[in-house]
Design a protein around this nucleic acid. Structure first.
Lengths: 196, 196
DNA sequence: GTTTTTCTTGCGTGATCTGAAAGCTTACGG
DNA sequence: CCGTAAGCTTTCAGATCACGCAAGAAAAAC
């Protein structure tokens, strides 16, 4: 069953809105861009914007949510025999370092966008939803990998811990001066997690 | 330096607003209560409400944020010789089980309030800020306890992981049918964390 | 008791988000 | 093909929210 023109158009509009929201926010700041502006950039009415996203912040973080969810799929795709810890580390290194990025979002927009989201109270809540999305995706993938029952706490706990560790690494990465690569930070954060 | 009348009044107003916000929300749902209602309940103007809280959701979760931050102080207060893992577990068991609750908030309001916050998209972001507050408080306390340098990732990573584990336990607790006590869930979640 | 600071309040404004109905576009079946 | 059904977009209107500003009231400082 092909997606059909209608569905493809919808996805395209969604992506365009999310991207415009992110880009404009990076350029002008959260309060410097109105929903109206984003809609105008894409060529739709403001009301249509809210048919896709229930808030400006949600649109800005939509691409990040998509990316977070892909982490789950990536973890599922690791070789079945691989030990869990290695699989997770490898997955996170690949995903977070932007190697696999179907969205053609310029690196600087990602970076500055993240920095801005983290620094703006009105968007912090939404960013934490990104983390939650990643946690859920990881939990599901881990449960799938380990074949644990639905009552086992382990997948959720590990998913949450890994997401938290990655968030810490990302935070450090954003504020590192001089800049450092993200990979080693992620690796170290995950190692420290295992230390505990 | 005593708090002074002015400061005490401010804190009282703040608490009253936060409590009214929580209670009314539990009774009528997030959309069923207006900022105007909360202000009226406490006997201040709506404008004053926004002098204390920058959003309705923030007010609703304010008491939870206070509680989360107390976790850090509680961890600092554990005996210095105690192993970190034990100290954390003991702290979380005491704090989350409501044993130490200076706010005289009825248990049912806490429970239903949490359930409602978790179920309402408009408040989820704010709840995640509660988690962030707990994570920060724990990180600081852990760093203080271990005497680690400011560049060490471990305190932040552990703080995040513990906060995540507690959130998982809380989630299960809220949806457990039939109801189960929170303590054992927290204990197990923290144990699983160490398993990884 | 006066002065000064701080908090509260009322008013006005800009922005966000949502419901409902009308118009246009796509999909489907003959 | 063509007409009908379904879905999406748009316009319009309304409700709420959050905030800046200036004036008034309460507390603190002197």
């Amino acid at each position: 069953m092909e997606p059909g023109l209608r569905e493809r158009k919808k996805q395209a509009t969604r992506r365009a809105l999310a991207l415009a929201a992110l880009r404009l926010t990076v350029e002008r700041g959260f309060d410097g861009v109105l929903v109206e502006d984003i809609a105008a950039e894409v060529g739709v009415s403001p009301r249509t914007f809210n048919n896709y996203f229930s808030s400006k912040a949600e649109a800005i973080c939509a691409l990040a949510v998509d990316r977070a969810q892909r982490a789950g799929a990536a973890l599922r795709a690791r070789p079945p025999g691989e030990p869990l810890r290695e699989a997770i580390t490898a997955t996170m290194l690949t995903e977070l370092s932007g190697g696999a990025a179907p969205e053609h979002v310029p690196d600087r927009v990602w970076f500055e966008g993240l920095r801005m989201v983290l620094a703006t109270p009105a968007m912090q809540g939404e960013y934490l939803r990104v983390r939650a999305a990643m946690q859920d995706a990881l939990s599901a993938a881990i449960a799938n990998r380990l074949g644990t029952g639905p009552d086992d706490l382990l997948p959720d706990v590990i998913g949450g811990a890994v997401a938290a560790a990655c968030a810490v690494a990302t935070q450090r990465w954003l504020h590192a001066d001089p800049p450092v690569p993200l990979g080693p930070l992620v690796e170290e954060a995950l190692r420290r997690l295992a230390d505990y």
